[in-house]
């Protein structure tokens, strides 16, 4: 995805990555999030991306320009490799204690408060109780995004 010069192809690969991630979510038994991932990301967001790419007709540009900037590219590549190495190094050194997978409850247990659960129901419960405030704010965030999009891309008015 990152190295593909074609924007549409990139977007397609991106969708593949997102779906693959959703698969990983499933592996982690987070079914609700996996579905959201596919629906929201792979579905809506990426479609939006593709739509814009098509709209703007910018898929042709070979913007990597490997020839011209080989050196700096190489340097950056090594930089990335360095970071990758660092990540491996640090994580392998630390070796996060890897706990066993616990059980996943079906829904919030009443006795013990909110138990760990990945069901949609527990999401709803927690969202509307503990995380009510962020939830409301997210609403405003979306409002802002909406207003923003409208303000920015509203058709230009001719000045009087």
């Amino acid at each position: 995805m990152v190295f593909n010069p074609n924007a549409v192809n990139s977007a397609m690969f991106m969708i593949v990555v997102l779906v693959a991630t959703a698969g990983l979510f499933v592996l982690l038994e987070a079914y609700f999030l996996a579905i959201l991932q596919v629906l929201v990301y792979a579905g809506a967001v990426m479609v939006l991306f593709l739509f814009i790419i098509m709209l703007l007709d910018v898929d042709k540009g070979d913007d990597l320009k490997l020839g011209r900037r080989k050196l700096s590219l190489l340097a950056r590549f090594f930089g990335v490799c360095l970071v990758a190495f660092l990540i491996f190094n640090s994580f392998s050194e630390v070796n996060l204690p890897s706990p066993d997978l616990g059980t996943v409850g079906d829904y919030p247990g009443i006795e013990s408060g909110i138990d760990f659960s990945t069901s949609a129901k527990s999401f709803g419960l927690i969202l509307f109780t503990k995380y009510m405030l962020p939830f409301q704010i997210i609403g405003f965030l979306l409002l802002i995004a909406m207003i923003g999009v409208i303000v920015i891309s509203k058709k230009q008015k001719t000045a009087e």
């Binding site: 982690l28 038994e29 987070a30 609700f32 999030l33 959201l36 991932q37 929201v40 990301y41 809506a44 967001v45 939006l48 991306f49 814009i52 890897s98 706990p99 997978l101 616990g102 909110i114 760990f116 659960s117 990945t118 527990s122 999401f123 927690i126 969202l127 995380y131 962020p134 997210i138 965030l141 979306l142 802002i144 995004a145 909406m146 923003g148 999009v149 920015i152």
Partner: peptide
Amino acid sequence: RFNQAMDGAIFVFFIMTVAAAEVAVGL
């Protein structure tokens, strides 16, 4: 999943929303 805590999963939910909003404005 490994920590057996819901909050992370909830956060994912928020992050997705935020990302969507960001994408909209950015685009």
